[in-house]
């Protein structure tokens, strides 16, 4: 299995764990991740304005590069995944964006959204398979009660992201089960943590995180799992509960965590 791999800026810095454990797990599962040269920041948020083209171009570059390599594109950061998938959807389905982006980009071949964008969770579920993954687990996380925290970017809007049921997802729960732990399902796992508002209004993000954490703890979670550095930041700021990147626990279960450090 070979994919182009887009780490994103945060994974090169504050969220190094998310990245290095992802690479270690991929190697352990026989997945080859190829990082393109000279990628740029995806912009962090998907530009909602129909007339915005420049903020989408960094994403288009990475997508077009993967297309040139003939690869599908994998990411692990929720935000990057969100931006790449939505920009790709525009390139495929919105003629105006497609035309204008191609005019700016001056690519060898026009890019029309042909690259498949996958979150690593989708690769684990649909390509590796959780049953196969389960067989590769050497340190099962037996006895741990883990709440998956999806947040907003991974799932919504459901018709574009198509990762899972946006209101009642299960991919991370299935992952937790495959790792030998017990998933804790709680209803606020797909509600927003407050995102970038925490820059100016920590009180508000605090209230939002409290509601999520209260729900998770109430249903018995001993720790939380996330795929997003921003969620991680907000949750950690307001919680005594340990919060991990899903790749870290995956690495632990696959027995590659220490080597990755």
């Amino acid at each position: 299995m070979k994919f182009s791999y887009y780490p994103g800026c945060t994974l090169k810095n504050k969220a190094k764990d998310l990245d290095r454990y992802a690479r270690a797990c991929a190697a352990a599962l026989g997945i080859e991740l190829i990082e393109p040269d000279d990628w740029q920041c995806c912009g962090g948020v998907y530009p909602l304005g129909k007339d915005e083209i420049a903020p989408k171009l960094a994403a288009v570059r990475v997508l077009a590069d993967a297309a040139e390599q003939g690869n599908q594109l994998v990411t692990v950061c929720s935000a990057c995944h969100h931006v790449l998938k939505r920009v790709n959807d525009d390139m495929k389905n919105d003629a105006d964006t497609r035309e204008r982006a191609n005019r700016y980009m001056d690519l060898q071949r026009p890019y029309t959204g042909q690259t498949g964008v996958l979150h690593l969770l989708e690769v684990l579920r649909d390509r590796v398979g959780f049953d196969t993954l389960k067989e590769k687990v050497v340190n099962p996380l037996t006895g741990k009660k883990i709440g998956a925290y999806y947040g907003c970017l991974l799932l919504r809007p459901g018709d574009v992201m198509t990762l899972d049921d946006p209101e009642n997802p299960r991919v991370m729960e299935d992952l937790i089960r495959a790792l030998g732990a017990e998933p804790v399902v709680y209803p606020y796992r797909n509600e927003c943590c407050g995102g970038y508002v925490s820059l100016g209004d920590k009180e508000l993000t605090g209230r939002m995180c409290d509601r999520i954490l209260e729900s998770a703890v109430g249903f018995g979670a001993q720790m939380l799992l996330t795929a997003c550095p921003l969620c991680m930041y907000n949750l950690r700021a307001h919680s005594d509960l340990p919060v991990y990147y899903f790749t870290e626990l995956l690495a632990e279960a696959l027995g590659v965590k220490e080597a990755a450090q």
Partner: peptide, 8 residues
């Protein structure tokens, strides 16, 4: 907008 089961 949402119905959320509570722990109780």
């Amino acid at each position: 907008g949402k119905v959320a089961p509570l722990p109780d």
